[in-house]
Computed example of a mutant assay.
Amino acid sequence: MSVACRFLSSGLLHKATSHISITGCRNSCFNNARMHWIRQIGTKANSTADSARPVTLTYDVFDGKGDSTPLVFLHGLFGSKSNFHSIARSLVQRTGRKVVTVDARNHGTSTHSPIITYEAMTNDLTQLLSQLRIGKCILIGHSMGGKVAMTTALTQPTLVERLVVVDISPAQSGSVTNFPIYIQAMKDVSVPRDVPRSTARRLAEDQLRKHVKERSLRQFLLTNLVEEDGQYSWRINLEAISNHLDDIMNFPEFNTSYEGPTLFLGGTNSAYISSEDYPEIQRLFPCADIQYIPDASHWIHADKPLDFISTVISFLQ
Protein backbone atom coordinates (compact mmCIF):
# COMPACT_ATOMS: atom_id res chain seq x y z
CA MET A 1 0.00 0.00 0.00
CA SER A 2 1.31 3.45 -0.88
CA VAL A 3 2.75 5.56 1.94
CA ALA A 4 0.47 8.35 0.74
CA CYS A 5 -3.18 7.61 1.31
CA ARG A 6 -5.47 9.04 -1.34
CA PHE A 7 -8.42 11.04 -0.08
CA LEU A 8 -11.72 9.69 -1.37
CA SER A 9 -14.19 12.31 -2.49
CA SER A 10 -17.93 11.94 -2.54
CA GLY A 11 -19.12 13.09 -5.92
CA LEU A 12 -16.86 16.13 -6.14
CA LEU A 13 -15.64 15.05 -9.55
CA HIS A 14 -17.18 12.88 -12.25
CA LYS A 15 -19.18 9.99 -10.83
CA ALA A 16 -16.80 7.46 -12.35
CA THR A 17 -13.94 8.91 -10.31
CA SER A 18 -13.72 7.66 -6.74
CA HIS A 19 -10.70 9.71 -5.68
CA ILE A 20 -9.46 13.15 -6.50
CA SER A 21 -7.02 12.09 -9.18
CA ILE A 22 -7.69 13.91 -12.42
CA THR A 23 -6.00 12.39 -15.46
CA GLY A 24 -7.73 14.22 -18.31
CA CYS A 25 -6.37 17.67 -19.14
CA ARG A 26 -8.43 20.36 -20.81
CA ASN A 27 -7.13 21.60 -24.14
CA SER A 28 -8.46 25.15 -23.84
CA CYS A 29 -6.05 27.92 -24.66
CA PHE A 30 -5.57 30.51 -21.93
CA ASN A 31 -2.58 32.36 -23.39
CA ASN A 32 -4.42 35.68 -23.74
CA ALA A 33 -5.69 35.58 -20.16
CA ARG A 34 -2.24 34.62 -18.90
CA MET A 35 -0.50 37.45 -20.74
CA HIS A 36 -3.15 39.89 -19.54
CA TRP A 37 -2.41 38.83 -15.93
CA ILE A 38 1.33 39.24 -16.44
CA ARG A 39 0.84 42.75 -17.87
CA GLN A 40 -1.21 43.68 -14.83
CA ILE A 41 1.54 42.79 -12.34
CA GLY A 42 3.17 46.22 -12.48
CA THR A 43 -0.06 48.23 -12.66
CA LYS A 44 -2.08 47.14 -9.62
CA ALA A 45 -3.40 49.90 -7.41
CA ASN A 46 -0.89 49.59 -4.58
CA SER A 47 2.11 48.36 -6.58
CA THR A 48 5.35 50.24 -7.11
CA ALA A 49 8.07 49.96 -9.72
CA ASP A 50 10.15 47.97 -7.25
CA SER A 51 7.44 45.34 -6.71
CA ALA A 52 8.21 43.63 -10.03
CA ARG A 53 11.98 44.04 -9.86
CA PRO A 54 13.71 40.73 -9.09
CA VAL A 55 16.16 40.46 -6.20
CA THR A 56 19.18 38.17 -5.92
CA LEU A 57 18.39 34.79 -4.39
CA THR A 58 20.89 32.49 -2.70
CA TYR A 59 20.72 28.80 -3.51
CA ASP A 60 22.49 25.46 -3.16
CA VAL A 61 22.98 22.98 -5.98
CA PHE A 62 23.19 19.22 -5.43
CA ASP A 63 24.49 17.79 -8.69
CA GLY A 64 23.20 14.50 -9.98
CA LYS A 65 24.77 12.24 -12.58
CA GLY A 66 21.72 12.09 -14.82
CA ASP A 67 20.44 14.61 -17.33
CA SER A 68 16.77 14.47 -16.30
CA THR A 69 14.84 17.63 -15.51
CA PRO A 70 16.18 19.18 -12.26
CA LEU A 71 14.14 19.54 -9.07
CA VAL A 72 13.81 23.00 -7.50
CA PHE A 73 12.69 23.27 -3.86
CA LEU A 74 10.98 26.36 -2.42
CA HIS A 75 10.62 26.63 1.36
CA GLY A 76 7.79 28.05 3.45
CA LEU A 77 7.43 31.15 5.62
CA PHE A 78 10.26 31.52 8.19
CA GLY A 79 12.17 28.74 6.42
CA SER A 80 15.33 28.56 4.32
CA LYS A 81 16.98 26.46 1.65
CA SER A 82 18.61 24.30 4.32
CA ASN A 83 15.17 22.89 5.25
CA PHE A 84 15.45 20.57 2.24
CA HIS A 85 19.16 19.69 2.28
CA SER A 86 18.79 16.13 3.57
CA ILE A 87 15.82 15.56 1.25
CA ALA A 88 17.87 16.92 -1.68
CA ARG A 89 20.81 14.61 -1.00
CA SER A 90 18.52 11.59 -0.83
CA LEU A 91 16.74 12.51 -4.07
CA VAL A 92 20.05 13.01 -5.88
CA GLN A 93 21.18 9.58 -4.72
CA ARG A 94 17.92 7.83 -5.62
CA THR A 95 17.02 9.62 -8.86
CA GLY A 96 20.29 10.97 -10.24
CA ARG A 97 18.62 14.34 -10.81
CA LYS A 98 20.15 17.70 -10.02
CA VAL A 99 18.41 19.37 -7.07
CA VAL A 100 18.40 23.11 -6.30
CA THR A 101 17.23 24.53 -2.97
CA VAL A 102 16.45 28.26 -2.86
CA ASP A 103 16.18 30.98 -0.21
CA ALA A 104 13.16 33.22 -0.88
CA ARG A 105 13.53 36.99 -0.69
CA ASN A 106 13.63 38.22 2.92
CA HIS A 107 14.61 34.70 4.05
CA GLY A 108 17.88 32.89 4.63
CA THR A 109 20.72 34.82 3.04
CA SER A 110 18.75 36.15 0.07
CA THR A 111 18.34 39.87 -0.54
CA HIS A 112 15.88 41.78 1.65
CA SER A 113 13.14 43.89 0.11
CA PRO A 114 10.18 45.83 1.55
CA ILE A 115 7.99 43.94 -0.94
CA ILE A 116 7.04 40.29 -0.51
CA THR A 117 4.25 39.19 -2.83
CA TYR A 118 3.80 36.10 -4.97
CA GLU A 119 4.24 38.14 -8.13
CA ALA A 120 7.58 39.45 -6.84
CA MET A 121 8.76 36.03 -5.64
CA THR A 122 7.84 34.49 -8.99
CA ASN A 123 9.93 37.14 -10.76
CA ASP A 124 12.84 36.33 -8.43
CA LEU A 125 12.59 32.62 -9.22
CA THR A 126 12.27 33.21 -12.98
CA GLN A 127 15.44 35.32 -12.93
CA LEU A 128 17.31 32.65 -10.93
CA LEU A 129 16.29 29.85 -13.30
CA SER A 130 17.51 31.96 -16.20
CA GLN A 131 20.83 32.58 -14.46
CA LEU A 132 21.24 28.85 -13.82
CA ARG A 133 20.27 28.11 -17.44
CA ILE A 134 17.41 25.91 -16.31
CA GLY A 135 14.85 26.06 -19.10
CA LYS A 136 12.49 23.59 -17.48
CA CYS A 137 12.25 22.26 -13.94
CA ILE A 138 10.11 20.30 -11.54
CA LEU A 139 8.96 22.74 -8.87
CA ILE A 140 8.41 21.47 -5.32
CA GLY A 141 7.13 24.12 -2.92
CA HIS A 142 6.07 23.91 0.70
CA SER A 143 3.46 26.29 2.16
CA MET A 144 4.44 29.81 1.02
CA GLY A 145 6.87 28.15 -1.39
CA GLY A 146 3.98 26.08 -2.72
CA LYS A 147 2.10 29.26 -3.57
CA VAL A 148 5.17 30.63 -5.33
CA ALA A 149 5.40 27.36 -7.26
CA MET A 150 1.71 27.53 -8.23
CA THR A 151 2.02 31.16 -9.32
CA THR A 152 5.08 30.32 -11.41
CA ALA A 153 3.33 27.37 -13.06
CA LEU A 154 0.26 29.46 -13.86
CA THR A 155 2.19 32.40 -15.31
CA GLN A 156 5.27 30.63 -16.76
CA PRO A 157 4.02 27.12 -17.63
CA THR A 158 6.83 26.40 -20.09
CA LEU A 159 9.29 26.54 -17.18
CA VAL A 160 7.49 23.87 -15.15
CA GLU A 161 7.47 20.26 -16.32
CA ARG A 162 5.74 19.01 -13.17
CA LEU A 163 4.50 20.62 -9.98
CA VAL A 164 4.45 19.39 -6.37
CA VAL A 165 2.56 21.56 -3.88
CA VAL A 166 3.22 20.57 -0.27
CA ASP A 167 0.49 21.17 2.31
CA ILE A 168 -1.03 24.32 0.89
CA SER A 169 -3.79 25.16 -1.56
CA PRO A 170 -4.67 28.10 -3.84
CA ALA A 171 -6.90 29.52 -1.13
CA GLN A 172 -6.79 31.95 1.76
CA SER A 173 -4.85 30.25 4.56
CA GLY A 174 -4.94 32.81 7.37
CA SER A 175 -7.70 31.02 9.25
CA VAL A 176 -5.48 28.00 9.97
CA THR A 177 -2.33 29.86 10.99
CA ASN A 178 -0.91 31.65 14.03
CA PHE A 179 1.70 33.52 12.01
CA PRO A 180 0.77 37.01 13.33
CA ILE A 181 1.37 35.73 16.86
CA TYR A 182 4.70 34.18 15.87
CA ILE A 183 5.86 37.38 14.16
CA GLN A 184 5.06 39.50 17.19
CA ALA A 185 6.73 36.98 19.50
CA MET A 186 9.89 37.13 17.42
CA LYS A 187 9.81 40.93 17.33
CA ASP A 188 9.60 40.98 21.13
CA VAL A 189 12.69 38.82 21.65
CA SER A 190 15.61 40.70 23.17
CA VAL A 191 19.03 39.07 23.63
CA PRO A 192 22.00 40.85 25.29
CA ARG A 193 25.14 41.54 23.26
CA ASP A 194 28.22 39.35 23.38
CA VAL A 195 26.68 36.30 25.02
CA PRO A 196 27.56 32.79 23.78
CA ARG A 197 25.36 31.48 21.01
CA SER A 198 24.01 28.67 23.19
CA THR A 199 22.98 31.23 25.80
CA ALA A 200 21.40 33.45 23.15
CA ARG A 201 19.31 30.55 21.82
CA ARG A 202 18.19 29.58 25.31
CA LEU A 203 17.19 33.16 26.18
CA ALA A 204 15.36 33.58 22.87
CA GLU A 205 13.52 30.28 23.28
CA ASP A 206 12.48 31.20 26.82
CA GLN A 207 10.92 34.40 25.47
CA LEU A 208 9.20 32.62 22.58
CA ARG A 209 7.72 29.91 24.81
CA LYS A 210 4.87 32.08 26.05
CA HIS A 211 3.30 32.36 22.60
CA VAL A 212 4.87 29.43 20.70
CA LYS A 213 3.91 26.33 22.65
CA GLU A 214 5.33 23.61 20.37
CA ARG A 215 9.03 23.00 21.01
CA SER A 216 9.65 21.85 17.44
CA LEU A 217 8.19 25.09 16.11
CA ARG A 218 10.32 27.16 18.49
CA GLN A 219 13.41 25.31 17.28
CA PHE A 220 12.38 25.96 13.69
CA LEU A 221 11.99 29.70 14.32
CA LEU A 222 15.33 29.80 16.15
CA THR A 223 17.15 28.67 13.00
CA ASN A 224 16.73 32.31 11.97
CA LEU A 225 18.63 33.71 14.97
CA VAL A 226 22.02 34.99 13.80
CA GLU A 227 24.92 36.86 15.37
CA GLU A 228 26.97 39.65 13.84
CA ASP A 229 29.60 41.61 15.76
CA GLY A 230 28.19 40.34 19.05
CA GLN A 231 24.64 41.47 18.26
CA TYR A 232 21.87 38.89 17.83
CA SER A 233 19.01 39.45 15.41
CA TRP A 234 16.64 37.62 13.09
CA ARG A 235 17.94 37.04 9.57
CA ILE A 236 14.42 37.15 8.10
CA ASN A 237 12.83 40.51 7.30
CA LEU A 238 10.09 40.50 9.93
CA GLU A 239 8.93 44.01 9.07
CA ALA A 240 8.32 43.23 5.41
CA ILE A 241 6.68 39.91 6.25
CA SER A 242 4.41 41.60 8.78
CA ASN A 243 3.44 44.35 6.31
CA HIS A 244 2.64 41.81 3.59
CA LEU A 245 1.17 39.02 5.69
CA ASP A 246 -2.23 39.40 4.01
CA ASP A 247 -0.56 38.94 0.62
CA ILE A 248 1.26 35.84 1.88
CA MET A 249 -1.87 34.30 3.39
CA ASN A 250 -3.92 34.92 0.24
CA PHE A 251 -3.38 33.79 -3.34
CA PRO A 252 -3.57 35.82 -6.58
CA GLU A 253 -6.66 35.46 -8.75
CA PHE A 254 -6.20 33.63 -12.05
CA ASN A 255 -8.44 33.01 -15.03
CA THR A 256 -5.99 30.52 -16.50
CA SER A 257 -4.84 27.02 -15.60
CA TYR A 258 -1.68 24.92 -15.50
CA GLU A 259 -2.14 21.79 -17.60
CA GLY A 260 0.94 19.87 -16.42
CA PRO A 261 1.03 16.92 -13.98
CA THR A 262 0.49 18.24 -10.46
CA LEU A 263 0.59 16.66 -7.02
CA PHE A 264 -0.95 18.29 -3.95
CA LEU A 265 0.56 16.52 -0.94
CA GLY A 266 -1.00 17.14 2.46
CA GLY A 267 -0.55 15.84 5.99
CA THR A 268 -3.49 14.09 7.64
CA ASN A 269 -2.84 16.10 10.82
CA SER A 270 -2.90 19.42 8.97
CA ALA A 271 -5.81 21.65 7.95
CA TYR A 272 -4.07 23.46 5.09
CA ILE A 273 -5.69 21.41 2.28
CA SER A 274 -9.40 20.89 2.93
CA SER A 275 -12.23 19.51 0.83
CA GLU A 276 -13.49 23.07 0.39
CA ASP A 277 -10.37 23.78 -1.66
CA TYR A 278 -10.89 20.94 -4.16
CA PRO A 279 -13.02 22.85 -6.72
CA GLU A 280 -10.44 25.65 -7.00
CA ILE A 281 -7.61 23.12 -7.24
CA GLN A 282 -9.49 21.36 -10.03
CA ARG A 283 -10.15 24.64 -11.86
CA LEU A 284 -6.56 25.87 -11.77
CA PHE A 285 -4.80 22.50 -11.99
CA PRO A 286 -6.97 20.11 -14.03
CA CYS A 287 -4.28 17.39 -14.02
CA ALA A 288 -3.97 17.43 -10.22
CA ASP A 289 -3.85 14.52 -7.82
CA ILE A 290 -4.37 15.11 -4.11
CA GLN A 291 -2.72 12.75 -1.65
CA TYR A 292 -2.22 12.76 2.12
CA ILE A 293 0.62 11.29 4.18
CA PRO A 294 -0.64 9.67 7.40
CA ASP A 295 0.34 11.14 10.78
CA ALA A 296 2.07 14.14 9.20
CA SER A 297 1.60 17.75 10.24
CA HIS A 298 2.09 20.87 8.11
CA TRP A 299 5.83 20.12 7.99
CA ILE A 300 5.45 16.83 6.12
CA HIS A 301 9.07 16.62 4.96
CA ALA A 302 10.29 16.95 8.55
CA ASP A 303 7.70 14.61 10.12
CA LYS A 304 7.82 11.85 7.50
CA PRO A 305 10.90 12.36 5.31
CA LEU A 306 11.03 8.80 3.94
CA ASP A 307 7.34 8.83 3.03
CA PHE A 308 7.74 12.28 1.51
CA ILE A 309 10.70 11.17 -0.63
CA SER A 310 8.99 7.96 -1.76
CA THR A 311 5.84 9.84 -2.76
CA VAL A 312 7.79 12.42 -4.75
CA ILE A 313 9.76 9.69 -6.55
CA SER A 314 6.53 7.84 -7.40
CA PHE A 315 5.11 11.04 -8.84
CA LEU A 316 8.24 11.61 -10.95
CA GLN A 317 7.92 8.14 -12.42
Rank of each mutant, 00 (worst) to 15 (best):
E253I: 09
T262K: 03
T48Q: 10
I273Q: 01
D229S: 15
S310K: 07
V165L: 00
T109A: 15
L125D: 09
L316P: 05
Y258A: 12
R202L: 14
Y292S: 12
D188M: 02
S47I: 06
I140W: 01
T122N: 02
R235C: 02
F264C: 14
G145D: 02
S175P: 02
S10P: 06
N237P: 01
F251E: 01
L125M: 15
I116E: 04
P294G: 06
I168N: 05
L74R: 10
V100A: 14
P252S: 11
L163C: 13
T158F: 10
R218G: 03
R105C: 07
D194E: 15
S297F: 01
C25R: 11
V99I: 02
A271S: 14
A88P: 05
I300P: 06
R97K: 04
R94G: 00
G76V: 06
S198P: 11
Q131S: 12
G141R: 10
A33Y: 03
H36N: 12
N250V: 04
K15I: 14
M186W: 07
R162F: 05
H75K: 07
T101R: 02
P70R: 07
S18I: 12
G141Y: 03
T152G: 03
A49E: 03
G76L: 07
P261H: 09
E253V: 10
S143D: 14
I134P: 00
S110V: 02
I38Y: 02
A288D: 12
W299Q: 08
L217C: 13
G108V: 05
L221G: 01
A204E: 13
T43K: 11
S28E: 12
K147V: 01
L77V: 08
A16F: 09
R209G: 07
T48D: 10
A149V: 10
V191A: 05
T151G: 10
T43G: 11
D124H: 07
R6S: 12
E276F: 15
K44I: 11
I115K: 00
P305V: 14
Q219L: 07
V100T: 11
V3G: 04
S270E: 08
V312T: 08
R235A: 01
L203Y: 05
D63C: 07
A16V: 13
I116L: 01
S233T: 15
T158V: 12
V72W: 03
D277T: 03
I115S: 10
Q291G: 13
T223A: 11
E228M: 15
I87E: 00
R94V: 01
S173Q: 09
V99N: 00
A288K: 13
D289R: 10
E119Y: 03
T56C: 15
K210C: 07
E214L: 13
E259W: 10
N237Q: 04
V100D: 12
V92P: 02
M35I: 06
S86A: 08
P70E: 05
C25Y: 11
F251C: 11
D295E: 15
A240M: 06
